[in-house]
Design a protein around this nucleic acid. Sequence first.
DNA 1: ACCTGAACACCGTTCAAGT
DNA 2: ACCTGAACACCGTTCAAGT
Lengths: 191, 191
Amino acid sequence: MPTPSRTSLTEIVSAARAIVESEGLDGLTMQKVASVVGVRAPSLYKHVSGRGELIKLIAEVTVEELSMTLESASRGSDLRVNLDAMARAFREFAHRRPESYRLVFAPTSDEWRPDPAVLAAAVRPVVETAGGLAGSQHGLEAARLVTAWAHGFVTMELAGAFRMEGDIDSAFYFGIERIGASLESARDSVG
Amino acid sequence: MPTPSRTSLTEIVSAARAIVESEGLDGLTMQKVASVVGVRAPSLYKHVSGRGELIKLIAEVTVEELSMTLESASRGSDLRVNLDAMARAFREFAHRRPESYRLVFAPTSDEWRPDPAVLAAAVRPVVETAGGLAGSQHGLEAARLVTAWAHGFVTMELAGAFRMEGDIDSAFYFGIERIGASLESARDSVG
DNA sequence: ACCTGAACACCGTTCAAGT
DNA sequence: ACCTGAACACCGTTCAAGT
């Protein structure tokens, strides 16, 4: 006879997120997820096509959270202040959820890749702020400069590539200051 | 009685590299490596402590290659030209060896992390060029701005995050041009 | 209609036994 | 002194059988 599902997709994804964050991607096994939501591994396949899709869903939820963080950091009226606040919020987010953040841009297979529309939505506040600074004809290019730098910085930081001498914080502030200035001066050059 | 080894560490690492490049990191199994070098999987453990160390060794070889590429791209006398050439060489390298490149800054566990000294050596030409532009008191910060941007850009590109509208090449050239300009103007500001 | 045990095809790694 | 088969402890995924 018909029986109601003992778990749900949302429950599964949030259990998976917690596991990734605490044990890393390698620690994410179907059996662990199943045991957290109180079911056996094969039952997960009623809700999710496999481990790959589960990873993609985690990445998408993470991007959506990041998106909200960036949006609420860029509500001021001064574009340079907004850019600075977004950069700091971006970095703090990555520090808070390093393992989830990692897999947003780490997808080696198509299956893991978050929906491009979700990514595009997250970048929207960056496009607005960076585009406002650089002039709208360079909006997308400016946004890509900012996001590439921010993503590269936190990725290298999380990977431990900055172990050497020097103050990491000051390198971050130097970066955002120089990028902000260079976008403003792009507005003045070629119309 | 003593018997000579039927393979070597170099042979193993280069077989592993080829597998990673053609089948991705997930395709790298000890059994495939073993069969390429003509041995059974357990024998690999005479040369390597495990799959993790093998991954680390691939990352280090890749960084060394990248290092040479950057060095030979920055031998001119004009710093802005050198910066441009290094950025292009960096991007081309990542396009040529996407799978190997990916795992340089992807290490989730300490075991996979390339030796910091190897990384530092690879960044040296960037520190020289960027530091020459921005002034030596900002050398390290400037190098981190450049490498973070370049790494972030190619990572996002490889991950397919730039699927949307817009010309990716022009975004790359915009980025390097703006960064070069902003480093030059950093030299003039605070002494 | 969901859940499960059992099974399949893999992994990485260890180790005693061969040569 | 290296190499190997066999074994161990895992994986993800499938599927027939339960309820």
